[in-house]
Amino acid sequence: MDMFLDVLVAVLLITGCLMSLIAGIGLLTFPDMLTRMHAATKPQVLGFLLIFTAVAIHLRSWSVVPLLFLAWGMQLLTAPVSAHMIGRAGYRTKHAVKGSLYDDELRQVVDTVTKKQAVETPEVPAEQSKDSTS
């Protein structure tokens, strides 16, 4: 049983570290920011889950599980938010290469908002403040 758990820990650790390596390779080789974002989120959720499971099994104690679960849950909650913010900022600042997209549904919305802002010139400060808080 002990031997089995040790082998399990080794496999989990190596797979978890492999996720980090995959993220590094993806960051190097993918062509633009949006695809690099896809690679960068691999170790955030699955990699951490594997590594934390390995830590809990190796320490053979239930007392570390709540804290590990807190760390993993925090990562699970914050990864989509930060990815959304980075993607949004990249889209609005033309850092993202839009020629590589198959389908761009956000473009219609952005165009409509820009047109509305251009027509209703007195409303521009209110629109901008609403835009910056959203």
Partner: peptide, 20 residues
């Protein structure tokens, strides 16, 4: 933004190293 993304991954690598 690419740099922020890469540094984010590096922080994750540091956490994984702490776990190791």
């Amino acid at each position: 933004l690419d740099r922020v993304l890469a540094l984010d991954v590096m922080l994750i690598i540091i956490s994984v190293a702490l776990c190791l």
